[in-house]
Amino acid sequence: MNIFRLAGDMTHLASVLVLLLKIHTIKSCAGISLKTQELFAIVFLTRYLDLFTNFISIYNTIMKLIFLGSSFSIVWYIRRHRVVRRSYDKDQDTFRHFFLMWPCLILAIFINEKFTLKEVMWTFSIYLEAIAILPQLVMLQRTRNIDNLTGQYIFLLGAYRAFYILNWIYRYFTEEHYVHWITWVAGVIQTLLYGDFFYYYFQSWKNNVKLELPA
């Protein structure tokens, strides 16, 4: 464990807690893409298949349970909660996210580190996580209104993978044989997708104006 990875995990944790807090306290999911949340739930499901078979550490297990629990409860809130689901704007959340899954699955079958079910599922989760934010970013472009909590959620979510990139660089130089091209390439692509959002987020923060995305 290094400081970059801890910062990444804490930022990731903060992002899901900000989202849960928003939905739970103001009982609204306005501006949140259900499709992105469903993709994240699938990411955790396919990545943590070895949750009970491959014990790494208490920290690792607890964090996995938190990410699984929070992502599924967020999906439940938006789909099932009698008050929250009324604020879900499904006409704006139109990205065909299941179309995103097939290329990830096919890619995972052909490009992976070992052709076993667990490894292919894990690789699938890496590819899917890289593009899972797309429905949310498309929805933001459409609705254009970004309330503070949603803005913070997306910022933290983008920052976590940026910290992981620093973690991979650190581990590459401090541990021999630490080479994981698949995770690195997917992680860089994932962070780049947040690129323009970061730009407008910092602009609004610097000029102290409400965050606006260009049409």
Partner: peptide, 10 residues
């Protein structure tokens, strides 16, 4: 080896 290391990350 590939299986161990990459799986200790979340």
């Amino acid at each position: 080896q590939s299986d161990g290391i990459s799986k200790d990350e979340l």
